[in-house]
Design a protein around this nucleic acid. Structure first.
Lengths: 168, 168
DNA sequence: TGTAACTTTCACAATTATTTGAAAGTTCAA
DNA sequence: TTGAACTTTCAAATAATTGTGAAAGTTACA
């Protein structure tokens, strides 16, 4: 396998993985491309490498910046913007967790609270089961939330080290 | 809010959450419906409650069984199959992790191994960066894998308890 | 066996998500 | 200011996913 082939394979697969992680294919591919690029790339270079349109490139680069996975780099004396990716896997995963927690877990918890606070009368077996399910999810989520908080705030080495010690 | 309204709201939102978690809307809705149902339901009851077709109900019920989130229940003297869901949130999340790890993480790691084993010549800055990225991802994944293994094998109370103690 | 009750399959339809590309907007050096 | 270089937007096109429903398949029991 030559270098180009290996690169393509990596980008393709990272893209496929992204789709099942709530990250669209192009966004994940741009991220893959930047992760394996030793230097920052311009929008045009990204469009060229992945054969995508300007609009598509623009939107997905912005999303990546939004997620904290890609940074802008301005070169003095050049009007173009260049992009460089976060390369520390720990930080990458952390950013994804933070972002998705905010986008998905939090709204769900809001809905559950809304239902809880509206005091659905427990006048049927069904209503009781609903309330119990909601209580369970909230309890579980608050635990998951604490764990994710720690995970997000801690340093990779500390976390993995302590964790692996704990299970011995 | 009455009980029906609360139920619908819960089902709708659980469905929406599913879509961003690699689980399709209907599959998540059926799961929600079963989670808040104190008794097992037949395919017809599910179709009726969610207003979906027989084919759709069938396929998604099978997937849920596949994921280990729903169980068949056979009532003596009744040819129909009834379905009941896993209600322990810890088990639900665990099953999802197991299933997705198998479906997503493992194939990615296979691709990375394939690239590594094909010995891409490190004859350019790019090829070096690619190899480094792949090494990093593999290192990270193997750590994540150990952690998930423990998480999957352990009991909820033990896990959360030990974890929260550890971070104090 | 025959047949009624139930489950599964699958071609096509509907829906949803993504991408394109051209036009509008912005920025900055002259 | 102007206009060239660059970025952003968005309506329409395309692609991908999901859902439908009727027909085929399966099963159990008379």
């Amino acid at each position: 396998m030559d270098a180009q082939e290996a690169k393509d394979k990596f980008i393709q697969n990272w893209g496929a993985l992204g789709t099942v992680w709530g990250i669209n294919r192009t966004m994940a591919q741009i991220h893959a491309l930047l992760m394996i690029s030793p230097k920052s790339l311009s929008a045009d270079e990204i469009m060229e490498a992945l054969q995508i349109s300007r609009g598509n490139a623009n939107i997905n680069i912005r999303s990546l910046i939004d997620w904290g996975l890609v940074y802008k780099e301005l070169k003095p004396g050049d009007r173009k913007e260049y992009f460089i990716s976060e390369k520390d896997m720990w930080v990458v995963v952390r950013q994804i967790i933070v972002h998705r927690k905010k986008r998905e877990l939090d709204p769900m918890l809001r809905v559950l609270d809304e239902i809880t606070n509206s005091k659905v009368p427990e006048d049927s077996e069904e209503a009781i089961a609903l309330n119990k399910t909601i209580r369970d999810i909230k309890l579980f989520s608050s635990k998951a939330d604490s764990i994710l908080e720690v995970l997000v705030k801690s340093d990779s080495n500390w976390f993995v080290g302590t964790f692996l010690k704990m299970i011995k």
